[in-house]
Design a protein around this nucleic acid. Sequence first.
RNA 1: GAGCCAUUAGCUCAGUCGGUAGAGCACCGGACUUUUAAUCCGGGUGUCCCGCGUUCGAGUCGCGGAUGGCUCACCA
Length: 510
Amino acid sequence: MYAGKQPGYMGGSIVKDHHEEHVEEQRQELNELMAIRRTKLQSLYDAGVNPYGEKFERTHYAQEIIDNFESLEGQKTVIAGRLMSFRTHGKASFSDLMDASGRIQLYLRVDVLGEEAYGFANQLDIGDIVGVSGTIFRTKRGQISVEVESLKLLSKSLRPLPDKWHGLKDVDLRYRQRYVDLIVNPDVREVFRKRSQIIQCLRDFLNTRGFIEVETPMLHPIAGGANARPFVTHHNALDMDLYMRIAPELYLKRLLVGGLDKVYEVGKNFRNEGISTKHNPEYTSCEIYEAYADAEDMMKLTEDIFAYIAEQVVGSTKIVFQGREIDLTPPWPRKPMLEAIREYAGVDLTGLNDEQARKLAREKGLSVPNNASYGNIVEEFFDEYVEPHLIQPIFITDHPVEVSPLAKRKKDNPNLTDRFEPFIVTWEVANGFTELNDPIDQEGRFRKQMEQREQGDEEAHMMDEDFIRALEYGMPPAGGLGIGIDRMVMLLTDSPSIRDVLLFPHMRPR
RNA sequence: GAGCCAUUAGCUCAGUCGGUAGAGCACCGGACUUUUAAUCCGGGUGUCCCGCGUUCGAGUCGCGGAUGGCUCACCA
């Protein structure tokens, strides 16, 4: 009954045969460096070593050992990570092991490990993942190290890593093979650790102030809440097209109607538009709504959020972006949009009608479509003359009603809204306003948007009848705020391109 | 979408006037028991992005294309 080979042995044999075939099959297509590693892989199997090990219990991270060396010197440790370099000296060798925390040097001696284990260690490659146990000490030259007493291969690496000194510079490859980028460029890990920290701080800040985090749909029957072209997708079972969300706004405001009066959502929006150093087709926003508040409250909230997070993550409200000091300390100045245009463009657009505004714009050499509204012209002047000057944090307020279809009109001027956008290093980093809670006005605004849509403006809002119905039940007066998380991360990590703060930025497929 | 630039070894890059394809790192072999971009000796591993053309001869010149970067346009 139990005659013949044991099941375990059989299993091993099958695995081995499978690997031999596989290795042989692929060898022809590989360059020499990879072929050598596959040969080594095969000899590991031949020697009965599993090159893809199992669970490994560690006692320390590399950085922990370095930070606490005084108290750890002479003690045993078990660590694991990727081998990043080798310096062999005959019967002794040095190697650098990198784990999530950092790097530490390994010291291997034949008289500690024994001939066999030492020989095995010298067959390892840069890039292999190992677990080691040993004793913490300091070399003659003062380098904190682990004298290795035993070593286990946990994962064989079959591809050579980029140059140890120059690393991986090809931007395209860095984004496409972010895993390699993360291995060889420690700064990149740091950026993403900070990104995580920033979002964590944001949640802490809001939760502490009594906001609750919610999740609303990403698949929308109507794409609303922003001026943007949506992605269209299809639900098979329902046989209907759906839009990937361009903003969570209209759902979050339904929650205000429902009585959840302080809500926020952190998540992705999808916009079917251009790609640039500041735009990715999917990006992360945090939208925040507070009932019984207004734009002024949301401006204070914005400043406080930026200041709090900068303090936590960078250690100061004065940060450096691309060599320039940016002072995020509240309060930030406020400036109405028309006043900013008067200041930087020398043009007063106050009280003009559409036609007068178009005429003035053309005189100034701006390209203006014939159906451009007063609001469009104001925005055009702003983008052209004002935006490039807004380096230090500032709130631009009081946007024209035509370009702010979800914001409440100003009490003293129905052509303007109680809206604000903070600008830092010329970027719009957020957008907020006193929310329009008048269903009749909202319906009128949607109709205006639909007219623009009919005139070919693909980014104009769609009519959302259910949202109107929700407002008809009564939405409390409220302030709303949307923060572009990616831009915030760029700012706080000194990253000039949005691709530097996205782990896997959108790339054309190869 | 337009302009400019780039594409050469696994990685980072040189390559002159059109004349047999180069360096460092990595890798392979050897020496070396406290090195650290270890060192020393030996070894060059290549679809020069692709195609067409000019030429006796193209990594190099011309045309077309691909991919990427930057700027502009678009886009909050």
